[in-house]
């Protein structure tokens, strides 16, 4: 049982680091945000494994849920700005 849990923890940590790297290196904002939401949900699982249910609840609700919704809206706005007439500032922001 403990071995299984250890394997689960290791898998969880590795996935978390992998998701963080993927979110950081993603070029497309929308993709990065979705990866960040997945990262937040797994992080909530990590807090639950650390026996901190309070932090897990807050992370799932605020870190993954609401921050995710806010950033998705921001990413949509950014994408609209990049396609719209204000293209010069967005092309400067991309590089």
């Amino acid at each position: 049982m403990t071995n299984l849990l250890l394997a689960f923890d290791l898998l969880l940590s590795l996935t978390l680091v992998g998701l963080a790297a993927a979110a950081l290196t993603s070029r497309e904002p929308r993709r990065a945000v979705i990866l960040f939401i997945a990262f937040g949900l797994l992080l909530a699982l990590v807090w639950a494994r650390l026996r901190a249910p309070d932090v897990a609840l807050a992370e799932a609700a605020i870190g993954a849920g609401l921050a995710g919704a806010l950033m998705l809206a921001a990413a949509r706005r950014a994408a609209r700005g990049a396609r719209g007439p204000g293209g010069s500032e967005s092309s400067a922001g991309q590089d």
Binding site: P53, D54, L57, A58, A61, I62, G65, L66
Partner: peptide
């Protein structure tokens, strides 16, 4: 476990 921040969220 619970509280103002989780409920507010």
């Amino acid at each position: 476990p619970g509280g103002a921040f989780q409920a507010g969220a």
